[in-house]
Design a protein around this nucleic acid. Sequence first.
DNA 1: GCCGTTTTCGGCCCGACTGTTTTCAGTCG
Length: 581
Amino acid sequence: MDNISIARLLDETASLLEIDAADPFRIRSYRRAAEAVEQQTTQLVTLVDDPKQLLAIPGIGKSMAANIQALLSTGTIPLREELLQKYKPTMLELLRLPGMGPKTVALVWSACQVSDIDSLEAAAKAGHLTKLPRMGEKFVTKLLKGIEDHRKNSSRFRVDKAQYHADIISNLIREFPGIDEITPAGSLRRGRETVGDLDLLVTGPACESDVVSAAVEYVAALPLIDKLLAKGQNKVSFTLRNNLQVDVRLLPRSGYGAALQYFTGSKMHNVALRQRAIKRGLTLNEYALLRVEDNTIIAAASEADIYNALDLDYIPPEVRENSGELEAAAAHTLPHLITLADIRGDLHMHTDATDGRDTIRQMAEAALARGLKYIAITDHSKNLAMTNGMDDARAIDHIKNIRKIDAEMKGKIRVLPGIEVDILADGALDLEDTTLAQMDIVVASVHSHFNQSIEEMTTRVLRALENPYVRILGHPTGRKVLGREGYAINIDLILKRVAELGVAVEHNANPARSDLNDLNLRLAKQYGCKIVVDTDAHSTEELDQMRYGITQLRRAWLTPTDILNTKPTADSFLQSLRSKP
DNA sequence: GCCGTTTTCGGCCCGACTGTTTTCAGTCG
């Protein structure tokens, strides 16, 4: 069992305890333990014989260490089993619906024996819920909408989770002798925000057709497989414990490019590409690009060969959606898409002063190690009390600490003082202008939206933008990739105003948080908005999530000049922002 | 359930916002 699975089970136990109305602090200790386990770089399964190392992890005490050992040896923990006698596992899914917290889940269970989404929907539609305390028409409407959204998304996995599993599986497969290359294809390679299943393409001498069976057997016996679905000549399909389906294809080097092209998609891109081939008397399939008349192979080993043989420039996977990329590749006008290496600064991150894990110095050094030239420390303001958000006095004090680290970094990397302020329901910010005036970067973000109407929400953000100290609009749509949808907002209006005022709009790179989708990114470019991409990192590791933001920018066809934090220095970046009053 | 002591028990993240209320419980970040 890997760390992520352990973390998930601990987290589920916490949720069950919540439904059971257990001691909140006990619940939190399970959540904290889950987080701690998830952040471990070494797999706990390797430490199981040495409880001392488990206990060395902050948040893991005697009982939790015993829980982890039980998980590793039996796959579950006694407390979890006990709770599952009282409650159904499907109730955990109910918690993912908006407005459904532990109390409400417990209520519908005790009052209507509702324990899963289908029966909750039925009860809602039959009007049974409005008879319960604190549940009116509005709640039911919101709930039904939430169920609909949930169904749309729940079968897909967030890109970073899929990438994590792809990396683990790839590392295991790579241990087999004669494997050279493993590439995730499909929507993961195209950089979609969510992934339905994982397609891993593998090649190397061990994948040649006369010897491939040994490698197939090896893959089919991987320890992390939950259910083996199929085992063919060169393909193994299985699911992981989290239900993610994985298809591993072992392919000879000679046809690797054709397979990569075929399985990367998208479907629409491939259809258009095959039509182009047919016009040229060629046919394209998953094995090769062939001449129709005599089946001669024209190209197969690399994707570039195939595109070039069709008189196209190489098309990066992120833009393979049949939305103009074939025409552009034919005309040699594909833009030079932005890459991770173009990014010079990260303008949104947190430290242990609020809800981050690491210190200002650790963040600065980690950013430096990642090649960045400047960062902004933007901890939370007081309204986010739960994060230990800072009031005016603390925020001003924090600037001193940031400047001190900035000086200590001796110009190797600039560390800019900033703050992430909360936009209140009336559009006001929760700190004084005199405080904001001392910050280089003020990120204004909405943190509570609930059921404000589109008009209210839009007005709220527009009002906040009028504050002259706001330099970046943080997570403008509040959109989450999975689960609860973001707030309803007139993004069109917001982006227009952002462009007029010279405020920058944030593209939040962290898939777990919120961001602009590629459509809105294109809109932002069209309106001439200044765009920054940042990680909103809460730990040094999260700085690595910049890669997911870049992929989204590439999907929107954006180039280095479209993004503000490709500016080479902190000064040139600050100059390109809305000027301070 | 963890942690750190003042070493064996008390503290641990709290305020805005909503719906259904007529004073507040529950959700969310």
